[in-house]
């Protein structure tokens, strides 16, 4: 997919704004494949994060995209999947 408007830095910003950051985790480091639980975010933090993404980007995310065992990469892919223009038929 060449069109990826939602990037890891967008996620980092929204995580910080909505739920803060754990001092023991380097959010600026390689986080794409570490699950959210290990990054210090519980289900409510992900609910808040999802809600902020949804309202900022005007999309709707499913529950699976925001489960604690998912990774930033999976969430970013899910967001970009929603943002991608619908295929022409």
């Amino acid at each position: 997919m060449s069109h990826t408007p939602f990037r890891v830095d967008d996620l980092r910003r929204i995580l910080r704004e909505g739920a803060g950051a754990d001092e023991t985790v380097d959010l600026e480091g390689e986080i794409l494949d570490t699950d959210f639980d290990a990054l210090g975010y519980e289900s409510l933090a992900l609910l808040e994060t999802g809600s902020r993404i949804e309202r900022e980007y005007g999309i709707s995310l499913g529950d699976e995209a925001l489960a604690p065992h998912t990774t930033p990469r999976a969430l970013i892919d899910a967001v970009n999947g929603e943002l991608a223009p619908a295929p022409r038929t």
Binding site: R16, G18, A19, G20, E23, L44, A45, E48
Partner: peptide, 8 residues
């Protein structure tokens, strides 16, 4: 306090 506690 830790950063995770501030927004909540």
């Amino acid at each position: 306090l830790p950063g995770r506690l501030i927004p909540q």
